[in-house]
């Protein structure tokens, strides 16, 4: 992890304090070239601050930031080969769509004909060709989003930073933009660093994800590993839903020492007529139909256990006594440092 060559971005011991408060508290991170990398965490977890540090809008109070092996943490944003797509797009309201896209090219003193051509190509790519002369105020949220993307990638950066770019869009549009983003990243072949608080979005889009909490990285892994093998209680509860067993509960109910988690879909009810005792027993408190599956909340002593079954499973009434079974392989031990239950 100390070798940083071949890495698009390397952070070492990065810290950003605002007075007493550490917004970012000792972050080490390596992001490979061409990777779709997400920084996931709740608001105030430090993910956006890290993005701003990489972009150069803010300086770390300690630590180093390298882009393609070159230290950049003392360079201004205009001297860094990264571009940002802002959360609320930050389009220039006094310029029309094509002038917005041309802005970075104009600053680079590219000849007028050439920059018009490059801007047109970028707009075509985002299917905005017809809107060239509109002002940002006359565009819908999705269109503004595309203009912001075109404006950022038209200057051909090595890294594109995206700060919750889909946050302001409605669900349908967001899903469509997710696909477009993924395609765009693949076609451009550059590194995307994507900040989001939406775990589903991060899981869908990313090659790798860093989960942030309280200014620290909890875990960096592929979406699959993050989901199946969460390292900490925070990751287990923030990424997907989890049944958490703290030390006491684990000891009493599972006969294990330490903190553990079991995903709801890895729990199953034992049919009452089989007469077998389950490994957990409790009372049904609530049952919800969520399309492809049923979620049943069961009170097991003081614990609230969530069980996910495929739709069409036998019905259970509120108040039913139920027995629950699971496989040992699905019980995950969690790291207990940095505990901060959600």
């Amino acid at each position: 992890m100390t070798e940083s060559s071949g890495m698009a971005i390397s952070l070492r011991g990065v810290e950003r304090r605002f007075g007493e408060v550490a917004a970012v508290d000792g972050v080490d991170l390596d992001i490979a070239e061409g990777e779709f990398f997400s920084m996931l965490g709740p608001s105030g977890s430090g993910k956006t601050t890290v993005l701003r540090l990489i972009a150069g809008f803010d300086e770390p109070t300690a630590g180093t930031i390298e882009l393609a092996g070159k230290p950049v943490h003392h360079l201004a944003s205009y001297d860094r080969d990264v571009n940002t797509v802002f959360q609320d797009y930050a389009l220039f309201p006094h310029l029309n769509v094509i002038e917005n896209v041309e802005f970075g090219l104009r600053v680079r003193r590219i000849a007028k004909a050439k920059r018009r051509q490059l801007a047109r190509e970028a707009l075509e790519r985002m299917r905005l060709g017809a809107l060239e002369t509109r002002r940002p105020g006359e565009l819908s949220g999705g269109q503004r989003q595309r203009v912001a993307l075109a404006r950022a990638f038209v200057v051909d950066p090595k890294v594109l930073l995206l700060d919750e770019p889909l946050g302001a869009l409605d669900k349908k549009l967001r899903e469509q933009m997710q696909i477009e983003l993924k395609d765009l990243q693949r076609n451009l072949g550059i590194t995307f660093v994507f900040v989001t608080h939406d775990q589903e979005e991060a899981l869908t889009l990313s090659d790798r994800i860093a989960v942030f909490n309280d200014g620290r990285i909890q875990q960096v892994d592929t979406p699959e590993n993050l989901y199946s093998a969460p390292a900490t209680e925070f990751v287990a509860s923030f990424v997907g839903t989890s049944n958490l067993f703290d030390e006491q509960a684990a000891h009493r109910l599972l006969g294990l020492s330490g903190t553990y988690t079991i995903r709801p879909e890895n729990l199953r009810f034992i049919a009452a007529e089989s007469g077998r005792p389950g490994r957990l027993s409790g009372t049904v408190r609530n049952r919800m139909f969520i399309g492809s599956s049923h979620r049943t909340i069961v009170d097991v002593e003081e614990l609230e256990i969530s069980v996910l079954e495929p739709a069409g499973s036998p019905n259970r009434e509120i108040g039913d006594a139920v027995a629950i079974d699971f496989n040992d392989a699905d019980v995950r031990k969690l790291r207990t440092d940095g505990l901060s239950a959600a």
Binding site: G56, N83, F92, G104
Partner: peptide, 27 residues
């Protein structure tokens, strides 16, 4: 003038004077 417009100008490579004349003054 939102701060992020000034940041966006810097992000796209505009230095102080460029940002001032191309973004701040018109706004």
């Amino acid at each position: 003038i939102p701060d992020n417009l000034i940041e966006a100008a810097g992000d796209l490579g505009a230095k102080g004077w460029n940002t001032f004349t191309a973004v701040i003054v018109p706004l």
